[in-house]
Amino acid sequence: MEVLRAGQVFDGERFLGATDIAIDDGTVVDVGPPGAYASDVTVEELGDVTVLPGLVDAHQHLTWDCSTDPLGWHRESDDEALLERGRANARRALAAGVTTVRELGGRGLVTVALRDELARDPSSGPMLLVAGPALTTPGGHCWFLGGECADEAALRAAVARLAAAGVDVVKVMATGGTVTPGSAPHESQFGVAELRAVVESAHAAGLPVAAHAHGTSGVADAVTAGVDTIEHVSFMTADGIAQDPDLVARLAASGLPLSITGGTVPGPLRPEIAIRLPALLEHLRGLVASGANCLFSTDAGIGPPKPHDVMVHGVTQLVSMIGLPTDRALAMCTSLPAKALGIADRAGRLAPGMPADVLVVAGRADEDVEAMLRPERVLHAGIIVADGRALDSPV
C-alpha cells in the first residue's frame, strides 16, 4: 500500500483540505486526514498540491484531427489512420488527467476497436465509452461517419447494428451542427417520432441515447422523446442565441443530464461562435442557475481550439467566464458526468473502492483555479502515466 499526502484534495464533490489517499493494487482504499501507518506503508509527501479524481470528459471525438476540415480528414484517411490518430489523442488526453472519455462520434467501428485496445493497457489511454457513428439524416450533420438514416425503420435497423457491434451508447443528431457543410445547428433533423424510435430501440438493447441538439426545437423534442443526455444545449438560432426561460425551466424540472460543451485553448474562435459568445455565456449562466442537471464536456477534436487535453482549460473558463465556484466546476468534470453516464462506481470520485484514477496539480486549486493548468502527475487504475512538472504534451 502507498499513501499520497496532499495539502488539498477534491474528492469529486468537495474540497477536503490536507488529506491522505491510500492506494493498494490500483484501488483507493482510504481517504482521510493525515495519519500514522505501519512501517511497510510508503507515504509520499506531495506538499502544496491539489489531488483530485481523474477528469471525465463526456463528449470527445478521439479519431478526429482537430483541423478546420473534418470532412476532408475523414475523406483522406483510412481506418488505420483514424485508429492511429485516436491512439495519439487518447495519450494526450490521459497525460492531462482525463482518465475517462465518452467518445461520441467516430467513423464506422474504429472507436470500438480503440476502446478495446485501450482497455487492455490502462497506461495507453482513458477508459472509453463509445458510440460509433452518430445517426443522422442523409447528408446531415456528420454524415461522413457512416450513420445516415432516412426514416424510422432505418434508425431502428441502425441501432440494432450498433448494439450488435458492442457500442456503449447511441448518439443521434436531433439538429444540425457547425462543422458539416450544408448543416445548420438551429435546424432540426429528426422530429419526436424519429427520436423516439431511436430511444425505444436503444433502450430495448440496454443502451442509453445521447442527443446532439443546438436549436430549441431539437432540444425540446429530445426531452419529449426520452433521451438520456442532451449534448450542447446551446439554444442557437440562425444568427444568435435564444433566451427561452420556459424551456430552461422544463429542462431543470426534468433532471435530464445536459452536457454543456465548452473549453478552448487560448486563441481565436470560429466566427460563428465568437459572435454568439456573449449571449451564449448569458444562456449558460441561466441554465446552471436554474438548477438544471448540467455537466461539462469539451467536444474535443472538432477544430484547432479543441485538442484532446482541453478540459483543464474548460475548468478555468467555467470559473472565469460563467462565474461558477471552483468546487462546482470540478464536480461538473468528475462526479456529475460519471453519475450521468452510469459509471459512478468506476469514475469521478476519490473514495474507498474506486479505481485509483488520480490527477495531481501544482498549487491549491481552491485558491487559484489555474492550478489545473499545471498537472504534475496522473494515475490511471493506479498506474503512473504522467509524472513531473513538464509533460510531453503541455496543455
Rank of each mutant, 00 (worst) to 15 (best):
G166L: 06
Q60Y: 12
M321W: 15
M321I: 15
A274W: 14
A365H: 05
E272T: 13
D246W: 13
W73P: 01
V378D: 03
E13M: 05
C149Y: 11
A160R: 11
V41F: 04
Q189E: 14
D57P: 08
L52P: 10
V209C: 00
D392Q: 08
F10T: 03
G226Q: 02
G267A: 07
L330Y: 00
D368A: 10
H186W: 12
L118D: 06
I383P: 01
R349Y: 08
S259R: 05
T326A: 00
A386W: 02
L118N: 08
S259I: 12
L330W: 00
A347N: 02
S201W: 13
T175Q: 12
G105P: 14
R91Q: 04
P181C: 14
T111L: 10
L109H: 13
L62N: 10
D121S: 14
A184Y: 06
A96M: 05
A38Q: 09
E282I: 15
C294K: 02
G388N: 04
C149A: 12
G140W: 07
L135S: 10
A131P: 02
L330T: 01
R346W: 10
L336K: 10
P245C: 11
S320H: 13
S297I: 11
S254E: 07
L247E: 14
S290P: 08
S234A: 08
G182A: 05
M127P: 02
M1H: 11
G218L: 10
V319K: 11
A81P: 05
S124M: 14
A344K: 06
P208W: 09
W64C: 05
V288R: 09
I322Q: 02
N89E: 08
G86H: 09
I260S: 13
P53A: 06
L82Y: 11
S290K: 13
M354V: 12
R389T: 11
A204W: 09
H283I: 10
